[in-house]
Amino acid sequence: MGLMDNLKGKAEELKDKAGELAGKHNDKIDNMVDKAGEAIDKATKHKYSDQIGKGTSAAKSAADSLAANKPKND
């Protein structure tokens, strides 16, 4: 097995593990994304509130998608 095959295998393992963790801790992830968005919004004096809102929504959606694609071996 070549180096690229090893890397691809490891990448799949990491993706599966990330999906598993995202599924188990989805509430915590959403909470931390909200807190980060609020801190950034405050630091920018609410100048970019719309963009920050879109970014936090996208981050939550990405975490949900990752959690939805986790392996079904539970």
Rank of each mutant, 00 (worst) to 15 (best):
D74T: 12
A67R: 00
H46P: 02
A43N: 07
A43P: 03
G37S: 15
K24N: 05
N6C: 06
G23K: 00
A63Y: 01
P71D: 08
K24L: 09
S61N: 14
S61P: 06
G37R: 03
A68R: 07
S65G: 15
D5E: 14
D30S: 09
A39F: 11
V33G: 03
I40E: 01
T44L: 15
S61M: 11
P71Q: 12
S57F: 12
G53A: 02
A43W: 04
K60L: 14
G9V: 03
S61I: 10
G55L: 08
H25T: 07
L66D: 05
E13H: 13
G37D: 04
D16S: 15
K24M: 06
K45C: 06
K47I: 07
H25Q: 10
L66I: 13
K10L: 12
M4T: 14
A63W: 01
K45D: 07
D74V: 08
E20Y: 10
M32S: 11
Y48T: 10
S65C: 05
G2N: 15
G19D: 01
L21R: 02
K35I: 07
G19P: 00
V33E: 05
I52Q: 01
N26T: 09
K70T: 07
M32C: 06
N69P: 03
K72E: 09
E13G: 13
G19R: 00
A43H: 06
I40N: 01
T56V: 06
S49P: 08
M32E: 13
D5M: 08
H46Y: 08
A22Q: 00
A11F: 03
L7C: 07
K15S: 15
L21D: 00
D74Y: 09
M1L: 09
N31Q: 10
K70C: 09
T44V: 13
M4V: 12
A11W: 01
G9E: 08
M32D: 10
L21N: 01
L3M: 03
K35C: 06
S49H: 12
E13S: 15
E12Q: 14
L14A: 07
V33S: 05
H46M: 05
A63K: 01
D27W: 04
A11S: 10
D41A: 08
D5F: 06
A67M: 02
L66G: 07
L14G: 04
A22H: 00
K17D: 07
A18C: 05
G9N: 13
D41L: 03
A58F: 10
K17S: 09
K24Y: 03
G19V: 00
K72I: 05
G2Q: 05
P71G: 13
Q51M: 12
K45A: 13
D27E: 15
A39R: 15
D30V: 05
A63T: 11
D30Y: 03
E20S: 11
A43Q: 06
T56C: 02
L3K: 02
L7F: 12
D64C: 06
V33D: 04
L14C: 06
L21A: 03
